Computed example of a mutant assay.
Amino acid sequence: MKIPILEKIMFDEPSTWVTATTIVTLISTVYLGFAELIGNHLQYSKFASSGNKPLAKQGVKILSRTGMLIFYTPAFLAGLVSFFVLPGGDLRFVLLKFAVTFHFFKRDLEVLFVHKYSGGMILGSVILITGFYFSAAAGLIGVQYLTLGLPEPSIDLKYIGLIIYIVGIIGNFYHHSLLSKLRNDNDKGYKIPQGGLFGLVICPHYLFEILIFVGFSFISQTPLAFACTFGDSLYLIARSYETRKWYVNKFEDFPKHTKCVIPYVF
């Protein structure tokens, strides 16, 4: 059954292969979100040693900086290479390539020059997250290339998407900077974050990452882009819920009015 509003804001799928990829992406990312809620966390940051397995059986642990560089670098390279492998295209295609490439380049820069680290992460989780980001970057750009020449959606969202993307990039960087200031170079402990939107939600950096993906989907307007955004948003909302629980258990003075990721709502 076709839904009229979706027909107005999305490109038609260019092939059955792309449709299958969209469905697989949606199912796999939704699963990751529900896995967080039942305690099967991806093991990085404060959840690096969580999970149902004994610590000795959780897998190889690597340095957080190394793991996070592995997260983002293949996706950044996929975006960068696309400018040479898939040159040209219309404005929408160029905007999407730039948005994807710059986002993951920014994350690499933050890993190298902004973040402070408290421990390690499990290699299996690193591989899983890297696979998602790389396949998302390559898939978004590749599918957009396949839409070149197809009829445009009747509602053009790319300029709204660009504005949302810029807000997301700025807000995400700003709150990552605030997090980095909680520790000096020798401090490995956790503190209750303050400043910015941290007084309203415990994970404003996740909120702005969600906006970045919303920006992707509005610029792109392909079903795959919306599937990536929905799945990534669900995962980050679930992760923020578990993060808030962690802070409540760790800090007796954690402000109870502070929500998870959406100010005043959740």
Rank of each mutant, 00 (worst) to 15 (best):
C228K: 00
A75G: 03
F173Q: 10
S28H: 02
H175Y: 12
H41S: 03
L236F: 11
S50A: 14
P263G: 09
D185E: 15
G171C: 09
K97L: 04
K57T: 03
K188R: 13
L69V: 00
F11E: 09
L42P: 00
Y264S: 10
Y190A: 09
F102R: 03
Y31H: 12
I122G: 01
I202D: 07
L77G: 04
G171D: 04
I169D: 09
L69C: 08
R92D: 07
P87M: 07
I9G: 05
P204G: 07
F11R: 01
F230D: 01
V85E: 08
F134P: 00
L150A: 13
T16H: 07
S15E: 09
L96I: 10
Y44S: 11
L6G: 06
F105P: 02
F11P: 03
P14I: 08
L6V: 10
P151Q: 06
S64H: 08
M10E: 09
Y241C: 08
S49Y: 12
G215T: 03
E209D: 15
Y117K: 11
R65F: 04
I262W: 12
S125M: 04
Q43M: 13
L86G: 01
N186G: 03
L26N: 05
K53T: 00
F134L: 13
M121K: 02
L55K: 15
S45I: 00
P4R: 02
L182N: 01
G89F: 10
E36P: 04
L32K: 02
L26S: 11
L200P: 04
V265N: 06
F47E: 06
S64T: 02
K106A: 13
A48M: 11
F105T: 04
E242I: 09
L157I: 02
I262F: 15
F84H: 07
W17V: 06
F105R: 05
T229V: 08
P223L: 10
H175V: 02
L69M: 14
L26M: 12
R239D: 07
I212E: 14
Y190H: 12
